[in-house]
């Protein structure tokens, strides 16, 4: 029931018929690549929309357009109903705190010479109203929210594990209480056991803060867990969008089906081969003997 109410609110993010073309190469070999070709999407408050696709499908370009880091050639970007298309960088600055991003590799995206406190605090530099004490309080609070106690404040990125570094990256993104968080492959650089911790954290933060995630990924397993809706991109075009469960269980598009089937699974029987029980049994006897 509550889900019905939230979906009737105006969407956090609306992408309307976006286009972006890049020129590749020089001279006679120059050609145009349609990175994003007529894509429309909406993201409702408190939900997760995943954008999946292979490399070169345009999903990162779409993320950069959504963050107003790139101007679209055509189309509109609406954040909380407000059209951001064509605004000057100065005018956009006002909206920056409400759009934040979490990056793929936490070590690449955290300045190595800054402490966790400085990294997270840097997100608040547009908040002129905050004194140093108040700013510190917010930083301590948000680091605690992501599971890093106070002793982490003075740590540098190299003193953190991958999971801890990504927690700092998440803290930096949510400290401004953004309405839109773009997650660009936030767990693909992390170890399996740590990946689950970070996904659980993202889920928990979303429930508590009503965060809205635009989740860029090529890892379908992670998408299935985190995303309410999923959009599949291929060669700049959106080939299918819908509820995540439907996309996975009853894909309508051939390409979507191919993508779902190609992703290796622990649960599904291997598609390309039949397990050879007889040989596996013979093998095990040998292992025992060998050791």
């Amino acid at each position: 029931m509550s889900a019905g109410q939230t979906s009737r609110q105006s969407p956090v993010l609306e992408l309307h018929r976006l286009r972006k073309t890049f020129k590749v190469g020089r001279g006679p070999k120059a050609r145009k690549v349609r990175a994003v070709d007529d894509v429309s999407l909406t993201l409702d408050k408190g939900t997760t929309l995943a954008v999946v696709g292979e490399s070169g499908s345009g999903k990162t370009t779409l993320a950069r357009l959504a963050m107003s880091l790139l101007p679209p050639d055509d189309g509109d970007i609406l954040l909380n109903g407000r059209n951001l298309t064509g605004l000057s960088p100065r005018a956009l600055a006002r909206f920056r705190p409400s759009m934040q991003m979490v990056f793929q590799d936490p070590f690449d995206s955290l300045a190595p010479w800054h402490t966790a406190e400085q990294i997270v605090g840097s997100s608040l530099h547009l908040r002129r109203d905050l004194g140093p004490a108040e700013r510190r309080r917010l930083v301590v609070e948000v680091l605690e929210r992501v599971g890093l106690p106070q002793r982490f404040l003075s740590r540098y990125p190299h003193e953190l594990s991958g999971g801890q570094a990504q927690r700092v990256g998440i803290a930096r993104a949510i400290v401004t209480r953004p309405s839109l968080v773009v997650l660009d492959e936030p767990t693909s650089a992390l170890d399996m056991s740590v990946q689950a911790q970070i996904l659980a954290l993202l889920h928990e933060l979303q429930n508590e803060e009503q965060l809205s995630y635009l989740f860029i990924s090529h890892d379908l397993a992670v998408v299935r867990y985190l995303a309410d809706r999923t959009a599949v991109m291929r060669r700049g075009q959106m080939v299918e969008v819908g509820d995540t469960a439907k996309i996975f269980d009853r894909p309508e598009n051939d390409y979507t089906r191919e993508l779902v089937e190609a992703s290796p699974r622990v649960t599904a029987a291997p598609a390309g081969r039949q397990p050879d029980r007889a040989r596996a049994d013979g093998v095990s006897h040998r292992v025992r003997k060998a050791l």
Binding site: M192, A196, Y225
Partner: peptide, 11 residues
């Protein structure tokens, strides 16, 4: 963890 993610449940 892998199975939970594949089934869309909390790992």
């Amino acid at each position: 963890i892998a199975v939970a993610l594949e089934q869309g449940v909390e790992p």
